[in-house]
Simulated assay, not measured.
Amino acid sequence: MARTLQFLLLLSATLLLAQTVYAEAATCSDCFIHSRAAYYPSSDENGTDTGRCGYGSFGATLNGGDVSAVSDLYRDGVGCGACYQVRCTNNNYCSDNGVTVVITDHGSSHNTDFILSRRAFGRMAQTTDAAASLLALGVVDIEYRRVSCTYPNKNITIKIDESSDYPYYLGFVIWYQQGRRDITAVQLCEAQNLACKLLDRSNGAVWTTNSPPSGPLSLRMLFSDEDGDETWVVPVNNIPNDWKAGQTHDTGVQVNS
């Protein structure tokens, strides 16, 4: 009887410990997750200018070219603009810090979560020679975690899509998304009477409307974190009344967390 009681107590303690570890792992936003990474087969060191996030040529050089495509982390475009610390796990080649990349595209290869630019893939290494060895491997084991995006001296900026047609259709992509929260909704408001309409996420980080409000336009962006907290951010600067396709507009705000 005593041994049975001891066994039950030990089993109960083991289950409680396992539940605690699982709960901590499930809620640990700073914990590393194990996966695999490849790199773009192009000889270009930077990312692609045709990424699914809609950044165009800007997406190839964003963050100095340390960018990546992702599979599940793309999240139907919500993951565009998010930053991740990615480090490979081979002690012979890989540095402790790895590289911080920005998500600009959607894709997977060889059961990977990340397809890095060649530049970013090599920057996981300790030395130039180690980088060459990593590139020769092509696919490596990694661990990653979400981190805050930081763009010194840069405000959140919008780029009017080239297909926009004043005043009938407006589309734009959001550049320099900061912090570690997602932009989950965008409203466009008439600056004078604040009549607002919710925009559609048409492609990655591209937001569109077939009937933009008239007059100078005020933007509102909803930032959401993994705990479900949401904050509307209203830029300082408005979009001018006579906006044109291809223009960029500095919102005048930074959102750091």
Rank of each mutant, 00 (worst) to 15 (best):
P216I: 01
S29E: 10
R123Q: 15
H106I: 02
R123D: 12
D30W: 10
W175V: 02
A23N: 08
N90R: 12
I142H: 05
A131M: 03
A23D: 13
T100Q: 12
D113I: 05
Y168R: 14
V253D: 14
N90I: 14
V173I: 13
I183Q: 00
A191C: 02
D49N: 13
P167A: 05
G246M: 07
D182L: 08
T48E: 04
R52L: 13
P216H: 00
L222R: 14
T251Q: 05
S12C: 13
G51L: 06
V234K: 12
R119M: 10
P240H: 00
S202K: 08
W207R: 13
A205D: 13
A2E: 12
L16T: 14
Q85E: 13
G56I: 04
E162P: 04
K159H: 14
W232I: 03
S214K: 08
R87W: 00
I158T: 11
Q247F: 04
L17S: 08
N111L: 00
Y55T: 08
C53S: 11
T231S: 09
P41M: 01
L199Q: 04
D129V: 11
S42V: 01
L11A: 15
W207Y: 11
A23R: 10
G79L: 00
R220T: 03
L10Y: 06
V236C: 00
R118C: 01
R146G: 09
S257N: 14
N241V: 08
